Amino acid sequence: PGFDAAVLATLGDGTALAVSGEPVVASDGSSWLPVTSGGQSGYVPAGYIVAAPVAAPEPAAAPELVTATEPVVATEPIPANSTVPAETGGLTTTDANLRSGPSADAAILQVLPPGTAVSIDGGAENGFVPVSGANGSGWVAAELLAGGEAALPPPLVADPDGAVTLPPTEASSSVPAASSETAPAPEAAAAAPATVRADSTGIIWPMSGGEWEVVQGYNNGTHTNRSGFAQYKYSLDWARVDGNTAGQPVYAPVSGTVQWTDRGSGGMLVDAGNGYGVAVFHVTIDRGIGRGDSIERGQPIGTVSGPGGDGYMSMAHIDVTVWQLNGRGHEAVPFSGPNAIAGQEFPDTGGANQHMGATVSP
């Protein structure tokens, strides 16, 4: 297991695999599943595998049949109610609480380990989906379930005033300790270049101090447009070059109105008021910030999440995304033109993982 291990074969989307054991954590912290396919055995990243549809839970502990697909990362708030076809399957991506009802306050029946295959039995309620399997039945937070995307409805419909109502989600409430080396808050006015375009969204860097690099670029891995709602093709993931990322302060990248915050993804979207909105993810957002609040660019909003923090995903980093808002959803656009970050452009250059390794010192 590990990204530096020898490649035995390349498996296409939809390849049938048999999981032959428990998940294994590699030295770099990534999770891998032992599998067999076509008589050959090896390891596949756990995030690339979802359970195939199942007609009913199996009482035996035999390996579940799963299907290779793109990794599923819950980075969007889950609407309160939605519909899903019966008899679809899912796979837990981390330790997941099986609860007695669709609420973070419902009793915990048991904890499902990573890689547990379950049947999704209905639509999502309050960000939870009803499931059943060899471990019994109950409710699991959709954000902890690969395959839980089947419970997502069509694009959200905004209220007449443009606000979107969001439900609570299940995520850790722990806040990582502040780094021993933190940067001072950027000056909101001085952070933007002097020659700002008249139509500029006015985006500044949401982090400050040290050298930061792109650890996942455009059009790669989880940064794709998976649906009309899940638009992440032009997202950029940033981490400090020295590795001192967790606990670093995060600042509002733009002035405007907070459209939502979501603890499950560590996310927040700010509507800049010019047809664009800027979102950050994997951040432990200040609990005093909520939907409808006015916010100024450069205002402290939280810290980069470490293990146990809101939206933490395998390594500490901050995801920055800009969307063109249309009232019923949003469309991913690159950080260029009116959406350059502090005057620095990241255009669409074609190909995969664009701007990977680019560095800045905000």
Results as ranks from 00 to 15, higher is better:
13 D>V: 05
220 N>V: 02
240 R>V: 08
272 A>Y: 01
156 L>V: 14
147 G>M: 00
333 V>F: 01
324 Q>R: 12
172 S>V: 02
189 A>H: 08
341 I>M: 14
352 A>V: 02
223 H>W: 04
259 Q>F: 00
333 V>N: 02
145 L>A: 10
228 G>V: 01
316 A>C: 09
218 Y>N: 13
230 A>D: 01
295 I>E: 11
339 N>C: 08
23 P>C: 11
335 F>K: 06
14 G>N: 09
22 E>L: 12
158 A>F: 00
44 V>R: 11
76 E>P: 01
71 P>D: 13
92 T>Q: 11
271 D>I: 03
225 N>P: 05
143 E>L: 05
288 G>I: 07
173 S>Q: 09
357 G>T: 12
96 A>H: 04
236 L>Y: 03
105 D>K: 12
355 H>D: 01
8 L>D: 00
198 A>D: 14
15 T>Q: 07
175 V>D: 03
97 N>D: 15
343 G>T: 11
223 H>E: 03
215 V>S: 13
328 R>M: 05
335 F>N: 01
316 A>V: 04
29 G>A: 10
94 T>Y: 11
133 G>R: 00
112 L>T: 06
235 S>N: 14
62 A>T: 15
180 S>T: 15
267 G>E: 03
142 A>Y: 04
37 S>Y: 02
323 W>F: 10
39 G>H: 10
226 R>I: 11
83 T>F: 07
115 G>Q: 06
344 Q>I: 14
308 G>V: 03
297 R>H: 14
243 G>I: 07
87 E>C: 08
337 G>F: 10
361 S>L: 01
265 S>D: 00
317 H>D: 03
249 P>V: 06
69 T>Q: 13
124 A>M: 09
52 A>V: 00
362 P>K: 02
288 G>D: 12
186 P>A: 04
137 S>Q: 11
7 V>A: 09
113 P>Y: 12
362 P>Q: 13
9 A>D: 14
259 Q>S: 12
235 S>D: 15
309 G>K: 08
81 N>D: 12
147 G>H: 06
37 S>R: 04
255 S>F: 14
30 S>T: 07
188 A>F: 08
5 A>M: 10
18 A>T: 13
50 V>G: 08
323 W>R: 05
328 R>N: 10
